[in-house]
Nucleic acid binder design. Structure first.
Length: 1064
RNA sequence: GGGCCCAUAGCUCAGCCUGGUUAGAGCGCAUCCCUGAUAAGGAUGAGGCCCCUGGUUCAAGUCCAGGUGGGCCCA
């Protein structure tokens, strides 16, 4: 026996996975395992991954964990495939979320107070705050086993990053893809900034607003509209009336002039009754005829705009007659539809008498200085006094509020910088076709549709903490210059900056080249999405540095984010890559769905409807959580209801069986003193027992399957085959090979060593296969099975994650063997079913089992694996035959798949006739002959034969095979059954006494039953061998454990025979 | 209002692309087996208007259209 320190040591079957994982994390630190895994692969093999930056202010949630797991599995896989995969963590450090946090900390209510406080002090406070919230990310990212570089991370506020963002902007500018225009946006006066539509949707509340109907006097007769008529309009925002510039009608909507008290009021036909139920229709016209009609605006503050085309009836496709009057008040500064309708009508003037904090300017003297909503009442009062107010009402409706400051939003035209996405959206659509999306529908449909309808992209924000729009504008002649680098700015201004934040950049000015004015930077900063979209260039400080590395790293091989990034990061990456290089930014994109709480609702911190991620990790471990998330609808971009039970189930179905197999190997290897040196003496796989060759073949097939799925990024398809393999390994290979591992040493150990070697090789290889998914437990197996046994002085990978990913070895694959084993397992399943349904305990031996099939592959498979079946089902003999007619009735059914296309409509008739066939015709078909049914020639391939077990027999049938068990019993078999019962009871006593599996025992028994005495005497040797007894003796009046076997009492005394060392 | 996705057993989900007459798995439940993987393991069983309506077809859980309900994104 080998006594070297290469011998295996027993690993207990019970295991604390979370504690194990903590130890592995320590090991990885010791080995510097992550950095080594990157550095050990050649630079030229680089596989590129881009990490989408999360907001630095957010704390990690399950969605981030899920994306993190995907971003870990794929790079680990490609690393093992031989590629260098650098993984830099990124941080989105700019933008409104962090500004709002800092505002809160500093006690500043909004932009006015920020300006008073000083933008420089405010921005520096933001910069400082960015540092504070990275710890929770590092902790949980490390704990879930994600290897990513936090040291060499990138931040959007880094000088290099920001300079590259300028370059990106400048390049688009040079291509004529940047412009400034007004855009009507949801505007938060609380934050003094426009919001995105997304942000505007975050906080809708039910509020009461005034709803007023106002009449506007027609000034000149125009077609059906006569001078002195009135146009009736309706609005829920009276404060926008001073900025009215037009009234819109729908061209094909019908309107009526309703006569009331001698005055005519124009209103949509179907709404007239709601205002004047008894009014007389004096005239009808459609909207088209009213266009151009001049009217007197509700207020006269801006009468001079009439010369620029204002105060006329225009048309708009947006006009409906769902509510109001069918004539719509147009204030282009405060409504997007208004803005476009006026533009279409050729009216380019814009009135916006409201300041940044939603107060009226002096242009509207009656309400100057008032907050717009507060001014509603005063304005309504003025309308009433002038006799233009027809009706006043209240309306309750959903209205958006600022999700940060809680103030009502208003819609307001804001000067905004745009990227001309519409100009190159066709290219984006074409380029998108080159990207491999998983799942596919996200790319082709969701994202593809979005691209086809792309609008110009608004990229500016009226805030403080962000990258600056690098445009300088002359205060004299409005000349604009775009600056693309620090050096270029220094060249113009003589100032060389080492920080590009607003408070630093804004003070840099230089003389205008066209006039005597001064060039000053425009005030806006860039939307953070522009920065994250610039990440491929900016994280490398391209093109100022790393040109070569950038060329290698663009486009990325792989990115992965949530479905919500369709319009987010995926989009901005593609817009910028297309605009800059006419290229795709990434080649493969894995999109995951949203994780919901168990109740099907969104996970909500305030509702506490989900378990804390760190607690899940502490209870179940990262491996289980990773596998649970990956093997879920999430990887098909569908939502998942997260349940702790699901995580527990993965532990049960995947982790524990794997661990038990490992424990099994080490337990019996230790008991037998097996070492890795012994395993080296094992025969080559081709010369091992068939079941060894079978599991090795299945393993190779698994490797092939997993590689194929991983290469296609179909992560959802990798866990099921792995689970199936674990089932094959534990519930068939080990179960059926157990005895081979227990055999004590003898002169010919070849078969036992082959079994140990096979199980060892399978566990080591399988660990590599699932290492990307379950990085912890596989590392433990690799350390204990490989690294610990490496002879001193030999070298090799120190971590499973440094090994090469297994490649299938075709010479080990045997499809015939795998098929044969499937048939054998099906026979066993039918046999088990028969034993259960007929109440035949497996302990009771039965004379024979018969397998009948006309399929030679099946009969051969069964015949050559009889030993597996006899052992598993405890039958003495396995018989094989072809003629099943004595056991089953044959039923013929139409094979619709074949007959349907051939016979068309007649198939139903033929199917019916097939059900009525006489025995002879059935036999002809079963024997492979042809018959004529209902005028059609039918061959054996055109039918499906079903086998129905005959009543009264112990027979089961499935598909092409039938199984029968002979239940005849004999005295010999009965005695053997009793012996099995005794073995069973003695084993139970062993267990209850706490004996080790390798302990030898003595057995003393006492019984008055002749049957039991016979069983023990006849089978003493078998019993002794099974229970590891050195002696089995009878003794009357014994005091021990009283048991009963089939009604007969027995007393047993079981004691340890001595030290287990004797066994050798 | 628009785009996309989803709806199958009590629960979580496969199957649908490529239509075929007995619709699967796991959990849970019930009954049982095994006991040298043992704080495990295994078998058997019950449990399904495959969301609804219409269409295409010899044939629809599967394809098409329209609904209903839910989700994501965008208005």
């Amino acid at each position: 026996m080998s006594t070297s320190d290469q011998s295996f040591r027993r690993v207990p079957p019970n295991v604390d996975f979370p504690a194990l994982e903590e130890r592995i994390l320590g090991l990885w630190d010791e080995l510097d395992a992550f950095q080594t895994s990157v550095a050990m692969r050649p630079e030229e093999s680089e596989y590129t991954f881009y990490d989408g930056p999360p907001f630095v202010t957010g704390s990690p949630h399950y969605g981030n964990l899920l994306a993190g797991v995907i971003k870990d599995i794929v790079p680990r896989y490609w690393t093992m495939r031989g590629h260098r995969v650098e993984r830099r963590f990124g941080w989105d450090t700019h933008g409104l979320p962090i500004e709002m946090e800092v505002q809160k900390i500093l006690g500043l209510s909004g932009p006015r107070e920020i300006n008073e406080f000083g933008i420089d002090r405010f921005n520096e406070a933001c910069r400082e705050h960015v540092q504070t919230n990275t710890e929770s990310w590092e902790t949980i990212t490390r704990r879930i086993g994600r290897w990513v570089d936090f040291e060499n991370d990138y931040k959007t506020m880094d000088l290099d990053f920001m300079e590259s963002v300028w370059w990106v902007f400048r390049r688009l500018w040079d291509k004529g893809l940047i412009y400034r225009d007004f855009k009507v946006l949801p505007y938060s006066w609380g934050a003094s900034t426009p919001l995105s539509n997304f942000e505007a949707n975050l906080d809708y509340r039910e509020v009461d607003d005034p709803a007023i109907t106002v009449r506007l006097r027609v000034l000149q007769t125009n077609g059906p509209a006569r001078e002195g008529d009135y146009l009736t309009i309706w609005t829920t925002t009276p404060w926008t009336l001073p900025a009215n510039l037009a009234v819109a009608v729908g061209e094909d909507i019908g309107y009526s002039a309703i006569e009331v008290d001698g005055e005519r009021h124009w209103v949509a036909d179907n709404l007239a009754g709601t205002i004047w139920p008894d009014g007389i229709v004096a005239r009808r016209a459609n909207g088209r005829e009213l266009i151009g009609t001049q009217y007197e605006p509700p207020f006269s503050y801006f009468e001079e705009e009439r010369d620029h085309g204002a105060f006329r009836v225009i048309s708009s496709p947006e006009v409906t007659t769902d509510e109001g009057t069918g004539l719509v008040h147009m204030a282009p500064a405060y409504g997007e539809a208004d803005f476009y309708a006026l533009a279409d009508a050729g009216v380019t003037v814009m009135l916006d008498p409201v300041d940044a904090e939603a107060r009226f300017t002096d242009q509207v003297p009656d309400v100057a200085g008032m907050y717009v909503k507060d001014a509603d009442a005063k304005l309504i009062e003025l309308l009433k006094r002038r006799g233009t107010l027809l009706h006043r009402d209240q309306i309750r409706h959903a209205y958006p509020f600022c999700y940060r400051t809680g103030t009502p939003l208003i819609y307001k035209a804001i000067p905004t910088w745009f990227v001309r996405v519409e100009q190159f959206k066709d290219r984006m659509v074409a380029l998108n076709g080159q990207i491999h999306w998983v799942p596919e529908f996200v790319g082709t449909r969701r994202f593809g549709n979005w691209l086809e309808n792309a609008r110009d992209w608004a990229i500016s924000r009226n805030r403080y903490w962000g990258s600056c729009i690098p445009v300088w504008e002359c205060d004299g002649c409005s000349e604009q210059v775009c600056i693309g680098s620090i050096d270029e700015l220094a060249g113009r201004s003589g100032v060389h900056l080492d920080d590009l934040h607003k408070h630093i950049v804004d003070v840099v000015a230089f003389p205008c080249s066209e006039c005597s004015g001064t060039m000053e930077r425009v005030p806006e900063v860039l939307d953070v999405w522009f920065e994250s979209g610039s990440m491929p260039y900016a994280q490398n400080h391209y093109p100022f540095e790393n040109e070569e590395a950038f060329a290698r790293r663009f486009p990325a091989d792989f990115i992965a984010e949530g479905l919500d990034q369709t319009r987010g990061w995926f989009y901005t990456l593609l817009v910028l890559a297309t605009g800059l290089f006419d290229d795709i930014p990434f080649q493969n994109c894995v999109v995951n769905g949203l994780i919901l709480a168990e109740d099907g609702r969104k996970m909500s911190k305030s509702l506490k409807n989900y378990p804390d991620p760190m607690e899940i990790l502490a209870t179940h471990g990262a491996d289980a959580l990773r596998a649970y998330l990956i093997n879920s609808p999430l990887l098909r971009a569908e939502p998942l209801r997260f349940t702790e039970g699901g995580v527990r189930e993965v532990t049960r179905a995947v982790m524990l069986p794997l661990w038990n197999a490992y424990s099994f190997l080490t337990t019996y290897a230790e008991a037998d003193g097996i070492s890795t040196e012994d395993l080296n003496l094992a025969p080559p796989p081709g010369e091992r027992a068939e079941i060894d060759r079978w599991i090795l073949s299945v393993l190779q097939s698994l490797i092939s399957e997993v590689n194929e799925q991983m290469e296609g990024y179909y992560l959802y398809a990798v866990i099921p085959p792995m689970v199936a393999f674990i089932d094959d390994l534990t519930n068939w290979y080990i179960r059926r090979s157990r005895r081979r591992f227990w055999r004590t040493r003898s002169n010919d150990d070849t078969d036992k060593i082959a079994a140990f070697a096979t199980l060892y090789e399978v566990l080591v290889t399988f660990s590599k296969v699932i290492a990307p998914v379950l990085p912890f437990v596989t590392e433990e197996l690799y350390q204990r099975l490989v690294v610990d046994h490496r002879p001193a002085g030999t070298e090799g990978p120190l971590s499973v994650h440094h090994t090469d990913y297994p490649e299938p070895r075709p010479e080990l694959i045997s499809a015939e063997l795998e098929n044969a084993m499937n048939w054998v397992r099906q026979v066993v399943n039918l046999g088990r079913s028969l034993r259960v349904t007929h109440g035949l305990k497996v302990r009771r031996p039965l004379p024979s089992l018969t397998v009948l099939s006309r399929n030679a592959e099946i009969t051969e498979a069964v015949a050559s694996h009889g030993w597996l079946i006899t052992e598993e089902l405890n039958v003495k003999e396995v018989l094989v035959g072809q003629d099943e007619r004595e056991l089953v009735d044959l039923e013929i059914k139409a094979n619709f798949k074949r007959l349907g296309p051939r016979l068309g409509t007649s198939v139903q008739m033929v199917a019916a006739a097939l059900g009525q066939l006489d025995e002879e015709s059935v036999q002809t078909l079963v024997d492979g002959g042809d018959i004529v049914v209902a005028g059609h020639e039918i061959g054996s391939d055109d039918v499906i034969v079903q086998r129905v077990p005959r009543a009264g027999l112990v027979v089961a049938a499935e598909g092409p095979l039938s199984v029968a068990i002979d239940t005849t019993t004999t005295p010999d078999l009965e005695i053997e059954g009793t012996a099995r019962e005794l073995i069973n009871r003695i084993q139970q006593i062993r267990r209850q006494s706490g004996l080790d599996v390798a302990d030898r025992i003595t057995v003393i028994w006492s019984s008055d039953s002749a049957r039991i005495a016979a069983a023990i005497e006849v089978h003493a040797a078998v019993i002794a061998a099974e229970v590891l007894a050195t002696s089995v003796t009878r003794e009357d009046q014994l005091i021990g454990t009283d048991i009963e076997i089939d009604g007969d009492p027995v007393t047993m005394a079981v004691n340890r025979a001595g030290s287990s060392a004797e066994q050798a």
